[in-house]
Deep mutational scan, measured.
Amino acid sequence: RGFLEKAAVKKMAKAIMADPNKADEVYKKWADKGYTLTQMSNFLKSKTAGKYDRVYNGYVIHLD
C-alpha cells in the first residue's frame, strides 16, 4: 500500500510541476487524506536533491 501511495503522490507532484495551477486542488486532496509533512517528505524523496522541494514547500504553506 505504501508503495502505491508513494507512486501516486509522485505522479501528482509531477503534475504540479508541469502545471502549477493544479497545486491547490492536489494539496487539498493530500490534506483530506491526512498526509503529514513527514509522510510527504518520505513520499517525495528523490535521487535528485531538491527535485520536489517546490511541491513540498507549497504543501507546507497549504497546511499552515
Score class of each variant (00 low, 15 high):
residue 36 T to H: 03
residue 58 G to P: 02
residue 48 T to F: 08
residue 48 T to W: 09
residue 39 Q to Y: 03
residue 23 A to K: 06
residue 63 L to H: 03
residue 51 K to M: 10
residue 39 Q to C: 08
residue 16 I to C: 05
residue 34 G to V: 02
residue 40 M to W: 04
residue 13 A to G: 02
residue 10 K to P: 01
residue 56 Y to L: 14
residue 20 P to E: 07
residue 44 L to R: 00
residue 58 G to C: 05
residue 48 T to H: 10
residue 50 G to F: 06
residue 33 K to T: 10
residue 15 A to T: 10
residue 8 A to K: 14
residue 11 K to E: 08
residue 14 K to Y: 07
residue 14 K to E: 13
residue 42 N to V: 11
residue 10 K to R: 14
residue 2 G to N: 13
residue 27 Y to H: 01
residue 49 A to V: 12
residue 60 V to W: 06
residue 47 K to E: 12
residue 50 G to I: 04
residue 56 Y to P: 00
residue 6 K to V: 11
residue 4 L to S: 14
residue 64 D to A: 15
residue 59 Y to S: 00
residue 33 K to E: 08
residue 56 Y to C: 04
residue 26 V to A: 06
residue 13 A to P: 00
residue 32 D to F: 08
residue 45 K to A: 09
residue 36 T to S: 09
residue 3 F to K: 14
residue 37 L to F: 04
residue 30 W to Y: 02
residue 21 N to R: 13
residue 61 I to K: 14
residue 61 I to T: 11
residue 17 M to D: 03
residue 12 M to R: 04
residue 19 D to C: 14
residue 34 G to K: 06
residue 10 K to V: 14
residue 21 N to D: 10
residue 20 P to D: 05
residue 18 A to E: 13
residue 18 A to Q: 11
residue 30 W to S: 00
residue 41 S to R: 14
residue 37 L to A: 09
residue 15 A to F: 06
residue 9 V to E: 01
residue 60 V to L: 09
residue 22 K to G: 06
residue 3 F to I: 10
residue 48 T to S: 10
residue 17 M to Y: 04
residue 15 A to I: 12
residue 29 K to R: 12
residue 31 A to Q: 10
residue 32 D to G: 08
residue 57 N to H: 11
residue 17 M to L: 15
residue 63 L to D: 02
residue 15 A to Y: 06
residue 2 G to R: 13
residue 56 Y to A: 01
residue 45 K to M: 11
residue 54 R to N: 13
residue 19 D to M: 05
residue 7 A to N: 10
residue 12 M to Q: 15
residue 51 K to I: 09
residue 40 M to N: 00
residue 27 Y to M: 02
residue 26 V to L: 05
residue 50 G to C: 08
residue 28 K to V: 06
residue 29 K to L: 14
residue 61 I to H: 13
residue 1 R to L: 14
residue 46 S to P: 05
residue 25 E to L: 07
residue 56 Y to T: 03
residue 16 I to N: 01
residue 19 D to T: 04
residue 54 R to V: 14
residue 27 Y to W: 02
residue 2 G to H: 15
residue 27 Y to S: 01
residue 55 V to A: 06
residue 48 T to Q: 10
residue 37 L to P: 09
residue 11 K to N: 09
residue 20 P to N: 06
residue 27 Y to I: 02
residue 30 W to F: 03
residue 35 Y to H: 03
residue 60 V to E: 09
residue 11 K to L: 11
residue 47 K to F: 07
residue 29 K to C: 15
residue 20 P to Y: 08
residue 36 T to I: 02
residue 8 A to E: 14
residue 27 Y to K: 00
residue 20 P to H: 09
residue 64 D to R: 15
residue 39 Q to V: 07
residue 15 A to K: 08
residue 43 F to K: 02
residue 34 G to L: 04
residue 29 K to T: 13
residue 9 V to A: 04
residue 61 I to V: 11
residue 28 K to F: 04
residue 50 G to D: 06
residue 12 M to W: 07
residue 42 N to H: 12
residue 22 K to F: 07
residue 55 V to N: 01
residue 26 V to T: 08
residue 2 G to K: 14
residue 63 L to A: 03
residue 23 A to F: 02
residue 44 L to I: 03
residue 28 K to A: 09
residue 12 M to S: 06
residue 40 M to E: 00
residue 27 Y to E: 00
residue 22 K to R: 10
residue 4 L to Q: 13
residue 47 K to C: 12
residue 46 S to Q: 05
residue 4 L to N: 12
residue 4 L to F: 13
residue 33 K to M: 13
residue 50 G to S: 06
residue 8 A to Q: 11
residue 63 L to W: 05
residue 37 L to Q: 06
residue 6 K to Q: 11
residue 62 H to S: 05
residue 43 F to Q: 02
residue 15 A to L: 13
residue 58 G to S: 03
residue 44 L to F: 04
residue 56 Y to K: 04
residue 48 T to I: 10
residue 14 K to T: 07
residue 28 K to C: 08
residue 12 M to H: 05
residue 2 G to S: 11
residue 33 K to D: 06
residue 11 K to M: 10
residue 63 L to N: 02
residue 35 Y to W: 05
residue 2 G to E: 14
residue 20 P to L: 06
residue 14 K to Q: 12
residue 19 D to Q: 06
residue 30 W to L: 02
residue 35 Y to A: 02
residue 39 Q to L: 06
residue 11 K to W: 07
residue 8 A to T: 12
residue 36 T to A: 03
residue 15 A to R: 09
residue 8 A to D: 07
residue 38 T to H: 11
residue 18 A to V: 10
residue 36 T to Q: 03
residue 37 L to M: 06
residue 56 Y to G: 02
residue 39 Q to P: 01
residue 59 Y to H: 01
residue 10 K to C: 11
residue 26 V to K: 02
residue 31 A to F: 08
residue 9 V to M: 03
residue 58 G to H: 03
residue 19 D to F: 06
residue 30 W to A: 00
residue 38 T to G: 10
residue 45 K to G: 07
residue 5 E to H: 07
residue 35 Y to P: 00
residue 25 E to R: 08
residue 29 K to V: 14
residue 28 K to M: 08
residue 33 K to Y: 10
residue 19 D to L: 04
residue 52 Y to D: 00
residue 5 E to T: 08
residue 12 M to Y: 05
residue 35 Y to K: 00
residue 9 V to W: 02
residue 23 A to C: 08
residue 37 L to Y: 04
residue 12 M to V: 04
residue 2 G to A: 13
residue 8 A to N: 10
residue 25 E to H: 07
residue 24 D to E: 11
residue 59 Y to M: 01
residue 40 M to S: 00
residue 42 N to K: 12
residue 24 D to R: 09
residue 62 H to A: 06
residue 23 A to D: 03
residue 31 A to C: 15
residue 15 A to S: 10
residue 1 R to E: 13
residue 61 I to S: 12
residue 51 K to Y: 14
residue 7 A to F: 11
residue 22 K to C: 15
residue 58 G to M: 04
residue 61 I to Y: 09
residue 27 Y to L: 01
residue 44 L to M: 02
residue 28 K to G: 08
residue 34 G to F: 04
residue 62 H to M: 05
residue 54 R to H: 12
residue 2 G to T: 12
residue 29 K to N: 10
residue 32 D to C: 15
residue 9 V to L: 04
residue 17 M to W: 04
residue 27 Y to A: 00
residue 47 K to Q: 09
residue 41 S to C: 14
residue 26 V to M: 08
residue 9 V to T: 02
residue 52 Y to C: 03
residue 47 K to Y: 06
residue 36 T to E: 03
residue 62 H to C: 04
residue 19 D to S: 06
residue 18 A to W: 05
residue 57 N to V: 09
residue 39 Q to M: 13
residue 41 S to M: 10
residue 49 A to K: 13
residue 63 L to P: 01
residue 62 H to N: 02
residue 34 G to T: 03
residue 20 P to F: 07
residue 41 S to A: 15
residue 41 S to N: 09
residue 52 Y to N: 02
residue 41 S to V: 09
residue 45 K to I: 08
residue 48 T to P: 15
residue 9 V to N: 02
residue 29 K to G: 08
residue 62 H to K: 04
residue 3 F to G: 13
residue 60 V to I: 09
residue 1 R to H: 14
residue 47 K to S: 11
residue 16 I to E: 00
residue 19 D to K: 05
residue 36 T to W: 03
residue 6 K to G: 10
residue 26 V to F: 05
residue 28 K to R: 13
residue 56 Y to Q: 03
residue 57 N to S: 09
residue 23 A to P: 01
residue 19 D to W: 06
residue 29 K to Y: 13
residue 14 K to I: 08
residue 49 A to R: 11
residue 14 K to M: 11
residue 51 K to C: 07
residue 5 E to K: 06
residue 45 K to C: 15
residue 48 T to Y: 08
residue 37 L to W: 03
residue 20 P to W: 15
residue 10 K to Y: 05
residue 39 Q to E: 12
residue 61 I to E: 13
residue 53 D to K: 05
residue 25 E to N: 07
residue 62 H to T: 03
residue 12 M to F: 04
residue 15 A to N: 06
residue 61 I to N: 12
residue 50 G to K: 06
residue 14 K to R: 14
residue 31 A to N: 06
residue 58 G to T: 01
residue 60 V to T: 06
residue 32 D to H: 10
residue 7 A to R: 15
residue 46 S to R: 05
residue 46 S to L: 05
residue 31 A to H: 13
residue 20 P to M: 06
residue 55 V to W: 02
residue 37 L to I: 09
residue 53 D to G: 04
residue 19 D to E: 07
residue 45 K to D: 08
residue 41 S to T: 10
residue 43 F to W: 14
residue 17 M to P: 00
residue 28 K to E: 07
residue 33 K to I: 12
residue 46 S to G: 08
residue 16 I to S: 02
residue 31 A to P: 00
residue 29 K to A: 14
residue 49 A to P: 15
residue 11 K to Y: 08
residue 43 F to N: 02
residue 35 Y to T: 01
residue 51 K to L: 12
residue 9 V to F: 03
residue 63 L to S: 02
residue 2 G to Q: 13
residue 63 L to K: 03
residue 12 M to I: 04
residue 8 A to I: 13
residue 16 I to Y: 01
residue 57 N to Y: 14
residue 25 E to V: 09
residue 43 F to S: 02
residue 57 N to T: 09
residue 28 K to L: 06
residue 54 R to T: 14
residue 22 K to D: 04
residue 21 N to C: 15
residue 9 V to C: 05
residue 42 N to C: 15
residue 41 S to F: 13
residue 50 G to M: 05
residue 46 S to I: 06
residue 41 S to Q: 14
residue 4 L to V: 11
residue 39 Q to K: 05
residue 44 L to Q: 01
residue 33 K to P: 00
residue 2 G to V: 12
residue 62 H to G: 02
residue 24 D to W: 08
residue 60 V to G: 07
residue 3 F to Q: 13
residue 33 K to C: 15
residue 53 D to H: 05
residue 45 K to H: 09
residue 8 A to Y: 12
residue 64 D to V: 13
residue 28 K to Q: 12
residue 53 D to N: 06
residue 15 A to E: 13
residue 6 K to N: 07
residue 3 F to P: 10
residue 40 M to C: 03
residue 18 A to Y: 08
residue 22 K to S: 08
residue 57 N to P: 02
residue 10 K to H: 06
residue 59 Y to W: 03
residue 26 V to C: 07
residue 41 S to K: 15
residue 32 D to Q: 13
residue 10 K to N: 04
residue 4 L to W: 14
residue 6 K to A: 14
residue 41 S to L: 10
residue 48 T to G: 06
residue 60 V to K: 14
residue 5 E to G: 09
residue 1 R to P: 15
residue 18 A to D: 12
residue 42 N to S: 10
residue 53 D to Y: 06
residue 15 A to D: 07
residue 8 A to L: 13
residue 39 Q to S: 04
residue 35 Y to G: 01
residue 63 L to Q: 04
residue 24 D to A: 13
residue 35 Y to R: 00
residue 17 M to S: 04
residue 33 K to L: 14
residue 45 K to V: 08
